[in-house]
Nucleic acid binder design. Structure first.
Lengths: 200, 200
DNA sequence: ATTTTTGCAATACAGTTGTTTGATAAAGGC
DNA sequence: GCCTTTATCAAACAACTGTATTGCAAAAAT
């Protein structure tokens, strides 16, 4: 398919291969060759659409992170009350769907810790995530002091990240119902359960 | 220093170099050469004390994880009440000390997700961690049903792991007092603060 | 004092890495 | 229909990887 090729489309196609490889073999197994083999194209294609591997990795992380927000935005349109917080958390923590993204998240964290550009990406995404959560939690907890609310937002984010790790490592031990129960417990402790919201 | 050499001692010396390199350059920057240069010895030493790099990495993770428990055990000897839970959480989350271990934790998670032996290590350590927490939390929350307590233990572990990530990525934004305040809030929500314990 | 043993350095080795280059072919524009 | 553009492949490149090998010197053992 030479000439007319949608570059963005092709890039996301490559990203799909990257995600799959990282999910299966980790970041150390994600080489130019394994990725291109997974995608069914030669290694030259990657060189054609990305200036180098770092840019490719950055694009992949950006894409996956944005995809999470796109899912959240879509589901938020028809959600209300505490359910809105649950949507924000559920789309980050793997409960049934998008398991392959957890491997990407772990790789993202490890690499971002040692790469300024990736860390900037991390901060951008997490700032947005916190804004989502603070907005919804403020609506459910109108009487909570701002600083306390901020800490609870931080804890919600931390708990979600931590549960992602737990479920990734001990997937067999935590079935879907268990995962939801833990998320329920979290929301209850944060004062975001239906009953808690009514009481407040 | 040929002949009489304490092998365990020498191995931990190598581990120190590994931790330093991982903390500074990440797992991708931790090669046999960078590690041996950091440690001030030749690459032959590594081959002499470990059968291969995988075993070396495994030993390093094991060592660091055990070091955390050793710190916890030491501090638990002179701690009582909710403070005991705080000790268990504080020695995992970086608050001032042992910052270099956070990079090791992130590397551990990413690698363990794709390596059976490392994942077994992870499960061992986390099982022990959960036992510590469950014991202390049971004492503070005697009336809590077992399944609820289990979920709260899971959430405590998850929150600690997540906060580790938060503080690693946004170290500048979270000062020591902020980190302690968030940990306080967590313990409060879990019903483990001094007041909550008295009320229960 | 001589002989082992062993900790360590240095180097060699084969395989893999990200990247570059040259060739090929397909689809525009004119 | 010709010419330019470009998407793709295949191969080659130098650099780096983990590991194996060789040599040597220092300390026990006898």
């Amino acid at each position: 398919m030479p000439k007319i090729v949608d570059h963005d489309e092709r890039r996301t196609e490559i990203v799909r291969a990257i995600v799959k490889v990282i999910a299966e073999a980790g970041v150390s197994g994600a080489t130019v060759r394994t990725i291109s083999r997974e995608g069914g194209f030669s290694s030259g294609v990657i060189a054609h659409y990305f200036s180098n591997k770092d840019e490719m990795i950055r694009f992949a992380f950006e894409f996956v992170a944005d995809r999470v927000f796109r899912r959240i935005d879509a589901r938020l349109k028809q959600a209300s009350g505490p359910e809105r917080v649950r949507v924000i958390l559920e789309e980050h923590v793997p409960i049934g769907k998008h398991d392959d993204e957890t491997a990407v998240a772990l790789a993202f964290w490890e690499m971002a810790l040692h790469d300024d550009a990736l860390r900037a990406q991390f901060r951008d995404k997490y700032r947005r995530w916190r804004e989502y959560l603070r907005l919804e939690m403020r609506a459910l907890l109108p009487a909570t002091p701002p600083d306390v609310l901020d800490r609870r937002v931080d804890l919600a984010v931390a708990a979600a990240d931590g549960l992602l790790i737990t479920f990734a490592m001990e997937g067999k031990r935590y079935r879907q119902v268990d995962r939801r129960a833990i998320l329920d417990e979290l929301m209850g402790l944060l004062g975001l359960s239906d009953r808690a919201a009514e009481a407040a």
